[in-house]
Design a protein around this nucleic acid. Structure first.
Lengths: 201, 201, 201, 201
DNA sequence: GAATAAACGAGACGGTACGTCTCGTCTTATG
DNA sequence: CATAAGACGAGACGTACCGTCTCGTTTATTC
């Protein structure tokens, strides 16, 4: 059952027992469940070990701490990560993407994501991990949509793309962490409409 | 919260020794310093007690936990809270406010604020406290600026003010918690310019 | 020291408000009840204050600590302290006294006494208090019985009275603190019978 | 140094890291020292942990509280526990045993023992522990001496052995906890002499 | 097939912060 | 001035989780 092709890509196998893929997936699966059930801060490494049938030593061998496990477990569930709709209209594309973001933020996974973002404020390792794998991947999609829109003449070429992406994605993150107003399709649509036309007369 | 501004509103004193204002301010001052020096998550209740000359029991008598102390200490330092510039131009007003926000987020206090926002993701009490005293007070200023701008005909009356405020303040919060790009005056100006004119041609 | 009859018995009133006898008796009564209900170690000064309608400061003003209060409360209840039966027979007298001692040790008050004896092992003030007011007063009665018995020719004049009293009262205390065997009339009688006749043939 | 013979004597080791005998003995040794140096009531769990190089968690894992540690530490030092002299004379045997008891009660260890007895008055777990391991083991020796004496015709067969043991050991315990008179060889001899011959003429 | 090497489960360990508790002192206003 | 009320500093308590370690076992490669 173990490593069909895991270590030693071509030849020269490492001596000793190879890493158990079974343990790894059991840990990640258990962590995903615990993140939903009790949340990031209440989840303990001991729970993960006990409920996944592994041991704390094994977990700490492969991950820095429970947050690193949580990040990997969280990422491993986001399979359909950051799809680019490419409908031919940048405005429509951004609308679809932002709807997706808000729906996700509003879901169970969104709460977990918020907790991870929270933890990242005092844990640089998580911060980097989240930025590279979640923030930037989403912005990469946004950059593609943006450049297509500029090429097609839909969008203003004189606006810095990074600023534009902040205008589009910022409100969602703001509502996620500040919880002052809901995250829903109507909000996504309103944000896109307003940010595209501008607020001034 | 026990007696916001202490005993006997008008007459009729509470029996017993009154709360020591000296202890309270010592706790808050020490906490402010510790927040800057070691950060929210590394700061311990025992440190606050020892360095403020009070005791853990006294701290736990008046605050739920170290986070509640941190919030109050943090708020007590933001004396010049959310000033309304009122220059006669809504665009200029928003520009000044957003510059202030970004400068604050980029400062030592901004790091503390980010940690508090992070903790709020798994602590509803802090979440409410932050939203009521920091998020909404800032938005209140924004609403005033907005309504003046609409009255003066500077701003579009058909845009929901809450959405507008999200467009203006969202990018700053986004950069604060995601740390993907800097928080500075140039960014504030670019955000205001872009959001006012709109992104579409 | 809890001045049994402190202020101005006869003449020369002290200025200021005199000590409230009402408070004193309320404290002692409440303490007696608490000693029975929760025991010495579980009883707190705060309970005494709250349930007697007094304040902790008042208690600490007149007693060293809760143990001193407990001792005084305990003593104040032993009104029929150490009666001397004087039946004309020393053996019968000791039998009656030892029965009384064992009945008392076996009662609710006996448990309280045992706890006080226990506390005395690490609190010299209590130790002195108990020895003077409970141990010695009982031995004083024993000494009277002993000397009458010697005079009447019932008892051996060549035995040290202190040793004799230890033989008579020792087993009861031993059973009280070691709890290895019951404290009852039959035991009292058996002890008196055996100690009087001796164990050797 | 790991488990010489601790877990499951013959085969089938217990999984997991075995209990550290080093920690256990360090805790007991430190506790013994602290009992002599500061006494039972003044000794704290934190002191034991700090001075033994272990942690509070480890102590609480294996013992209920500091008193349980104290009992075990105390017992572990009484290696030559309750020797039976067996000189051929029951009176002489009891004399030797009682001298030993009184010498011990009069020593540093005797003060510790008194404090343990004191604590037992409000802690049933300690009470049982002390009774089983200290009180009864001593009485077991006494029962052997007694039955040999009865067989040899030295002692009265019509006296209940438990009562006899109370007469012999009771005075020592009485003096230990009441501190009304000294604990020495002369007292031991006088007690044995008097209790054997009886007090009545 | 034996030896070697590493990963594994179980769980004990030292460390540290937590939040609670009781103690004995103090600071008010009241009588 | 003694009091009731109750806040306070001090510090021990027992719990929880962290990340490390030490066992004996299992699973692979290498000789």
């Amino acid at each position: 059952m173990p490593n069909g092709h895991n270590n030693n890509e071509r030849f020269g196998a490492t001596p000793g027992r190879p890493r158990s893929e079974q343990s790894k997936t059991a840990v990640l699966r258990t962590t995903s469940r615990l993140l939903r059930e009790v949340g990031l801060s209440a989840m303990t490494t001991e729970q993960i070990a006990a409920q996944s049938g592994t041991s704390k030593a094994t977990i700490y061998k492969w991950w820095h701490n429970k947050f690193a496990v949580a990040v990997e477990a969280f990422l491993s569930e986001l399979h359909t990560e950051s799809a680019d709709p490419d409908t031919g209209s940048a405005v429509r594309d951004f609308g679809l993407v932002l709807r997706g973001v808000m729906r996700f933020y509003d879901s169970e996974g969104g709460r977990v994501f918020a907790e991870l973002v929270g933890q990242a404020q005092s844990d640089p390792v998580i911060e980097v991990e989240l930025r590279e794998h979640l923030i930037q991947s989403r912005r990469d999609v946004g950059r593609k949509i943006w450049s297509r829109g500029v090429e097609r003449g839909e969008l203003r070429a004189d606006v810095d793309v990074e600023i534009a992406l902040d205008l589009i994605f910022g409100p969602a993150m703001y509502r996620l962490v500040a919880s002052h107003d809901p995250l829903d399709d109507a909000t996504a649509d309103a944000v896109i409409a307003a940010v595209m036309r501008g607020l001034a007369r």
